[in-house]
Each structure stands twice: as C-alpha cells, then as structure tokens.
Write a protein that binds this DNA or RNA. Structure first.
Lengths: 191, 191
DNA sequence: ATAGAATTCTAACGAACGTTAGATAAAGGA
DNA sequence: TCCTTTATCTAACGTTCGTTAGAATTCTAT
C-alpha cells in the first residue's frame, strides 16, 4: 500500500463499500479495517458518514460527468457519440465506481433527498444539450425530438452496461447501435 | 386498513421500505410499525429478514417478468413492443415496486450473490427471446444482431423510466422510439 | 364447554452501529 | 530544547439492530 494521503485512501475504500453494500450497509468500522487505520481517523478527516458519502457524489461524481459532457465534438456525429461512450471503458476503477454510485443515487436507489434533487437539476439539461449537439443533423426532420430522446435513452443503457454492470463494450458494438438510431441523420450532412 | 392477510400486508410494507432504504436500511421494527403489528409477528410469518427479501424477488418479481414475457404477440411488431412497454404504466403500485426492487438486484445495487446469479440466468435468455420474436422481420438484414441488441437496450431504458424513475410514458412516445430502432424492419412484412 | 392449535403480545438478549472523549505519538519551527 | 500543531490511537458512550423466550389471547373443532 502506498503512502498516499490517508484522506484519499479512506474515500477510495468508502466508494467501494458504498457501491457494494449501500449507504446503510457500509460501516465506518469496515472502512477503517480496509484502510488499515483506526476508526476515529475517519472522523479526523470527515465529520461523519453522510459527509463522506456526499463528498463522493457532490465533488467526484459531478466533476466526472461535467468533464465528460465537455468533450470536444468530433467532426462526425456518430464518431463523436461512439467515442463518448467507448471512453467510459477506459475510466479508472475508482472513477467507474464513483460513476456507478452516482447512477445509484440518480435512480434514487441510495442517497437522500438533497442529492436526488441535485441529480434532477442535472438531468434537466441532458435532453437540451444533446438536442443542441444534434441540431445540424436533424434540422429538416419531423421526428427530431423523438430521435434525440431515443439516442439519450440508448446512451443511458450503454452507460449502465459499462459502468454499473461492468461490461466491456467494443467500439464496433457501440457504433452499430448509435448508427441504428441516427441512421436518418447521417446522409444529411456527413458522407 | 382492510383485514387482508397479515402476511401479505407485511410483504407489501417490506417492498416499500426495501425500495426506499435498501436491505440494510430497512428494519424489522419499522416494517412492524407501518404494518401496525408487533415486531415478533414478522418472525411468525417469515423466518428472518433475508427470507422476506428473497421471497419478494424469487416469487413475486420472477412471476411478474415471466408473465410479462409470455404476452401474446400482436400482429404488428411495433404495436407489440409498444404495448409491451406501455402496459407497465398500468401495473399496480405493489407490482411496480416489486419490479423496481428486482431491477435494483439486477443491477447488483442490492440483494446478495444468490439473487444476482438468478438474475444472470434470466438475462441470458433475453436477447435470444427477442431475436426469435424479431426473426420474421429481420431475416434479410445484415445488421440483424445489432438491431435486436439496440431494441433490447432501448426497452431496458424505457422500463427503468417507468418502473424505477416512476415516469409516465405515453403510448405515442414509446411507439416513436421503438419505430426509430425498427424502422428498417417495418416495410418488410407489415404495411 | 373445553382442549388444542393458531395468533399475537411484552420484554429482553447480545451484537453492532455512529460517534466522541481524551490520551499518546510525531513533526516542525522558535 | 521546548512548545505548538498535526496525526493517530484505545476505550468507551448511548442507541439501534436482528432475533428469541415465553406468556397471553383468540380461534376452532369436538
């Protein structure tokens, strides 16, 4: 075990245990045991259990998805979305678990009201954001809204497969599925 | 409160609390309080907490999805899948919560190894089943497998929206999205 | 009416929980 | 060197947990 900041090591172990056993099933004692430190050390760095959980979601999870959302648009829309999903495979184990815990809260399977409403805020801008991205490719289509919705729904499942169910999806698999949803768009602007 | 079997009332309250607070966050005392009975009555009908949780998944959840999977095929494939999803809106509150808890286990957000492996067993026949259903419509297509996969992925998200996030999806919304994924198939056999 | 089974209760057990008090050790500048 | 700050510990507090013992009540068939 390296001599990294104990504070970070605590959070790392906590993410694992919150994922595996949920908020209530995770105990400060078990975290301390895995970190190999004494129990009150957790309280030296975090005021209480809830603050530890909240920091993972509020800091780590949101900075993760904000970073992901700010990815540069590729020249080709299908390449763009394919990379968008495919890159999730390469997330570090820690980031994957943070993402997974975030989805757990997003589905209100864990966390509290406050965290859930933060998720609702975020969710509100998902559809508009992708609508904006897809605008150049869907401007003449009558079912534009449905296409954006379907794509976002597909992306959600792909994310869940990689991050929650811990599957590896190949780039080709991802591209195939995205192409099926966007097949009406590709001939408009691209090759 | 009606005088239905106390055993059923216990399970009903348990489903609510397991959904809201997870396995570890749910206490026998709180169940008893909501059922308005004494604490040992839970143990009169169920040997322990885990048996209560397991019965919900093993009996109620699996009978629910087996019933759903055995729905009669409609003459039109898009109508069929649209109804398949749309009908979820009409599930009783209890069945929705049972379904939701099952998904929680399916995503290994709750439950134990044994329940998870039951889920894995079930998951294995999802793709083949839909491949069979779609066979008449995809037999001449080169991306048949990708279409089935994409459809199943879309169905998963729609199910999560209705059952986990408790959204109401209109029949038109559902049909639009399914049509986008199956647009290559419809002109083959149908009108 | 009454014996026996089925149902429900009060009260408690030991274990584990989140959290804290307070002592000890290590580090670093004066 | 000594003093202050930072880091770490042992031990315990009060609470809640899953579970059970054992008594009281209600039902049912004779």
């Amino acid at each position: 075990m390296t001599d990294r900041d104990l504070r970070d090591r605590i959070k790392e172990v906590a993410v694992k245990q919150f994922n595996a056993n949920g908020y209530h099933g995770t105990t400060i004692r078990n975290i301390a045991k895995d970190v190999n430190c004494s129990l009150p050390m957790i309280y030296y760095y975090y005021n209480n259990k809830k603050e530890l959980f909240d920091e993972i979601i509020k800091k780590d999870f949101f900075s993760l998805i904000k970073k992901q959302a700010s990815q540069l648009k590729n020249e080709n829309i299908i390449d763009f979305y394919t990379k968008f999903i495919y890159n999730l495979n390469a997330l570090s184990d820690y980031d994957k678990l943070v993402y997974r815990l975030g989805i757990k809260v997003y589905m209100s399977f864990d966390g509290d009201e406050e965290l859930m409403s933060l998720m609702d805020e975020w969710e509100k801008n998902i559809l508009p954001r992708h609508r904006e991205i897809l605008k150049p490719y869907t401007k003449n289509m009558n079912n534009e809204k449905a296409i954006v919705r379907t794509l976002v729904h597909l992306l959600e499942t792909l994310i869940v497969n990689i991050v929650v169910k811990n599957r590896y999806l190949t780039e080709d698999e991802i591209r195939e599925e995205i192409s099926i949803v966007l097949q009406g768009c590709i001939t408009k602007e691209d090759g």
